[in-house]
């Protein structure tokens, strides 16, 4: 079996971001982390590989040289067998181009399962898994909270509104990982050492024979959330209750 898994870097939600002067992108030094949902996808791929002998795991990152570091430390150091970096300018590509890249990679690598994070925590688009399943004509299971292989089928428990749904898919298929799928392991020191020697192929978009590389979405404007307003001191409980009723309108 072969599993292709995403290793996308995202801006660290704990770090401060500066919006560029034209209001369309982020500027200055940005602290990056591996997308937490990709960490769940990677952990899932590793657990499936541990449970099923002869499974190859391949991690994919899309971006520049810095992205390669996240493939190595976030995926290969945890135990993924090899990596692929597709070079692209993240400021330009949209979810559709990323889906096309995964389509091209799947046609080239022929995995049994494409495992992606359900969304990136910076862009929050939640589109790539669904689009690539459509382009490939593969079945998909989004928001997975449990994944098991039984015979020729993958049994996926999905987080849906108000409960859980369990579905069976034929392979090849697309699965997107939700937060409760698992508890991602730490990258071990031994793993980090081994990861240095693991293969990491670098591809350009032209290598993949894509149908389209034109983005369909353009960033028009970005803005930071409005700052918090200063609080007011109240003198009595009655005044507090009055303000909650008339101004905040919460009681």
């Amino acid at each position: 079996m072969k599993i292709l898994v995403s290793a996308k870097r995202v801006s660290d939600p704990n770090a401060r971001l500066n919006i560029s002067r034209d209001g369309k992108w982020i500027e200055g030094d940005v602290e990056y982390i591996l997308n937490p949902f990709c960490e769940n996808a990677i952990e899932c791929a590793l657990q499936l590989a541990e449970a099923h002998d002869g499974t190859e795991t391949v991690a994919v990152g899309i971006g520049d040289d810095e992205t390669a570091r996240f493939i190595r430390q976030g995926a290969l150091a945890r135990g993924v067998d090899r990596g692929i970096l597709v070079e692209a300018d993240e400021a330009v590509i949209d979810s559709d181009v990323i889906a096309r890249i995964y389509q091209g990679l799947c046609e080239r690598e022929r995995p049994d399962i494409l495992l992606l994070g359900k969304q990136a925590i910076d862009g929050d688009s939640n589109q790539v898994g669904q689009l690539v399943a459509e382009y490939l004509g593969w079945p998909q299971a989004t928001f997975a909270s449990k994944v098991e292989i039984q015979g020729d089928e993958v049994i996926v428990q999905r987080e849906v509104d108000g409960g859980l749904e369990t579905i069976a898919l034929t392979m090849p298929c697309v699965i997107t990982a939700d937060l409760r799928l698992n508890e991602p392991r730490y990258a071990s020191l031994a793993g980090i050492m081994k990861a240095k020697k693991k293969p990491l192929d670098e591809l350009e978009m032209d290598d993949l024979d894509l149908d389209s590389t034109d983005p369909k979405v353009r960033v028009v404007a970005m803005s930071t959330p409005a700052g918090r307003k200063a609080g007011v001191m109240v003198k009595t409980v009655d005044e507090l209750v009055h303000k909650l009723k008339t101004e905040a309108r919460v009681v």
């Binding site: 660290d12 704990n14 770090a15 602290e31 982390i33 591996l34 937490p36 430390q73 976030g74 730490y186 990258a187 071990s188 020191l189 031994a190 980090i192």
Partner: peptide, 11 residues
């Protein structure tokens, strides 16, 4: 014997 490295401020 072994060790792990935090990959993010959360870790």
């Amino acid at each position: 014997s072994d060790g792990v490295v935090a990959q993010s401020s959360k870790q």
